[in-house]
Amino acid sequence: MEYIIAIFIGLLYACGVYLILRRSIVKVILGVFVLSNATSLIIFLSGGIQRGGAPFIPEGAETVDPATISDPLPQALILTAIVISLGISAYILALKYRYFDVTGTHDLDQLKNTDQR
């Protein structure tokens, strides 16, 4: 299973990289989405993907055997990552919207002359 997921991550990365290499800004944003998802998956995979129960401590018990539940730490990390990538994606979208509004172009190559020349 790990092999399949690893290949899947590789595919996500390939697609993400291809997208952010485009000149059209919309595609670049899509690429960012894909890449952030793929990166979350890497973290997830690192926790081990044996199918376990959700990481809860049952009522009445003090602790739980780590072997029976899925690893909680990567999940916590990914939670943070998802929320942050959501915030950033929303921001990029808004920025893109403004950018298109002001410049009237979505071609990144047109951006190159914004430096003082």
Binding site: N37, S40, S70, I78, L79, I82, S85, A90
Partner: peptide, 27 residues
């Protein structure tokens, strides 16, 4: 990807992913 999380016991993760993805789509 959210389903994948769900399958491997990361319930909260799946919920957040569903939510985030939805919000993003709407946006």
């Amino acid at each position: 990807i959210a389903m994948l999380y769900l399958y491997y016991g990361a319930v909260d993760l799946a919920i957040t992913q569903f939510l985030a993805e939805t919000v993003l789509m709407v946006l």
